[in-house]
């Protein structure tokens, strides 16, 4: 058990932090929602009702979609794009899908390679692109969830202002939908660009995301 925790500490710690922060978001969101209820002259809603509301749903989903978009793009584009001096980048001459030998597929697979790396056809293609595909699918699913919860939350607001509710397809053209979406996208893209640049000159000793402290600023594709 102890060994399991130690060997999986990165996932476990982030998983637990995620749950704690999600609960804190729900608590603060519930308080904010009930403030609005009071302003509207309505009674407060229970915590259970809030966490199953469209309002909470859209707030959660809009952040999820942007995070998964960030990782989807990052996984996909770092195959082709490089940044001189950044440990986030491959070496300058390695841009692209690389050779089968480099990727240990087909005849170059070793005894520890996943089975689908050894076989050809769609299974190898699927394994070769599985990380990007899963990130991309979770992004699309979260974005769809954002739009569905978003239109319900938007319509609740519309009705509270004595205005007509709108349909899902019309909501997709509303500034509210795109504002929620783009404000998250811009921050994710900024974070990636910052990480790629900062890690050229800055170090975090011992981190897999940093070059070794003594590595040259020009060294590319070197992780600590």
């Amino acid at each position: 058990m102890r060994r399991f925790v130690k060997e999986n500490s990165l996932t476990l710690v982030f998983g637990v932090l995620f749950l704690i922060v999600l609960v804190l978001q729900a608590i603060s969101g519930h308080a904010g929602y009930n403030q609005q209820q009071l302003t509207d002259g309505l009674p407060p809603v229970s915590f259970g009702r809030y966490v199953t509301s469209a309002s909470f749903g859209v707030d959660v989903a809009e952040n999820w979609q942007s995070e998964y978009l960030q990782f989807f793009l990052y996984v996909l584009l770092t195959a082709w794009l490089v940044q001189k001096g950044s440990p986030e980048s491959k070496s300058l001459g390695e841009a692209g899908l690389e050779s089968d030998q480099d990727q240990k597929v087909g005849p170059y697979a070793d005894e520890n390679s996943p089975k689908w790396a050894r076989v050809g056809g769609p299974r190898r293609w699927l394994l070769s692109n599985s990380l990007g595909l899963v990130m991309g699918l979770i992004f699309l699913g979260s974005w769809l969830a954002q739009s569905i919860a978003g239109v319900a939350a938007y319509n609740e607001q519309q009705l509270s202002r004595l205005q007509d509710p709108i349909g899902w397809s019309k909501y997709l053209a509303e500034p509210e939908f795109w504002n929620r979406t783009l404000q998250n996208w811009q921050s994710e893209l900024l974070a990636v660009a910052s990480m790629a640049i900062f890690s050229i000159y800055l170090r975090q000793r011992g981190s897999s995301q940093s070059k070794p402290v003594g590595a040259a600023h020009t060294a590319t594709g070197v992780e600590g």
């Binding site: 209820q37 309505l42 809603v45 509301s53 469209a54 309002s55 319900a152 939350a153 319509n155 609740e156 519309q158 009705l159 509270s160 007509d164 509710p165």
Partner: peptide, 9 residues
């Protein structure tokens, strides 16, 4: 009848 959360029309 339209119903969203705590509001309806």
């Amino acid at each position: 009848t339209e119903l969203y959360g705590q509001w309806a029309q």
